[in-house]
């Protein structure tokens, strides 16, 4: 029984941290993984800090406790960095991925981060340009794959495209915008 690959998503109520975890889990399953995706089970309030989680594995996952030592932490809202225990449980090779205009060096300096790998991408900016409103969770999916390589990106894109086409069958421009946002974040994450 191998330790599953674990991701913790931080966002604010309404930003889609839970949706991101569910979408990511669903897409990971389509590439052949066993998955779990679950939100933090607390009250849901717009704007309040929320967390969501993913487990991925090549074998069935038996563990059902919360995630305390994730491989990756994804932050949808940089303002959470000041008040939330964002890096808690991240090990030496842990990855922190932040939605921000800042560079990884700036984030490291601002928050005094050592020993972990920091990546940044302007997911909010990308979503405004491609989808037309601020939905950072969708491009962040691409960025997570970009920095972890935990999933095959082409297979992931095929599955997401198919699902978006079903969901927005009457609004093809939305599908197009979402796809472009994921691709751009995948390429631009640094």
């Amino acid at each position: 029984m191998k330790k599953p690959f674990e991701i913790r998503w931080h966002g604010r109520g309404g930003q889609g941290a839970k949706t991101a975890a569910l979408l990511f889990g669903d897409a990971a399953m389509a590439t052949g993984k066993y998955i779990q995706a679950f939100p933090e089970y607390g009250p849901e309030r717009m704007g309040a800090p929320v967390q969501a989680f993913n487990r991925l594995s090549d074998e069935p996952i038996h563990i059902h406790s919360g995630i305390k030592k994730p491989e990756v932490v994804v932050v949808l809202d940089e303002t959470l960095m000041k008040t939330q225990p964002i890096t808690e449980g991240l090990g030496k090779d842990g990855i922190l991925l932040v939605n921000t205009k800042s560079t990884p060096g700036e984030i490291k300096a601002t928050y005094g981060l050592k020993d972990i790998k920091v990546y940044t991408v302007d997911a909010s900016g990308i979503s405004k340009e491609t989808i037309g409103k601020e939905i950072p969770n969708t491009p962040m999916l691409g960025a997570v794959i970009g920095v972890t390589n935990v999933l095959d990106f082409d297979r992931f894109m095929r599955d997401v495209t198919e699902k978006l086409k079903i969901k927005f069958r009457n609004r093809p421009q939305i599908v197009e915008g979402n796809i472009r946002s994921i691709k751009r974040a995948y390429e631009e994450v640094a």
């Binding site: 889990g25 066993y34 998955i35 779990q36 995706a37 089970y41 996952i61 059902h64």
Partner: peptide
């Protein structure tokens, strides 16, 4: 099933 732990956890 266990409330939330299973009822609200997405899996394959």
């Amino acid at each position: 099933t266990d409330g939330f732990i299973i009822s609200h956890c997405m899996q394959r």
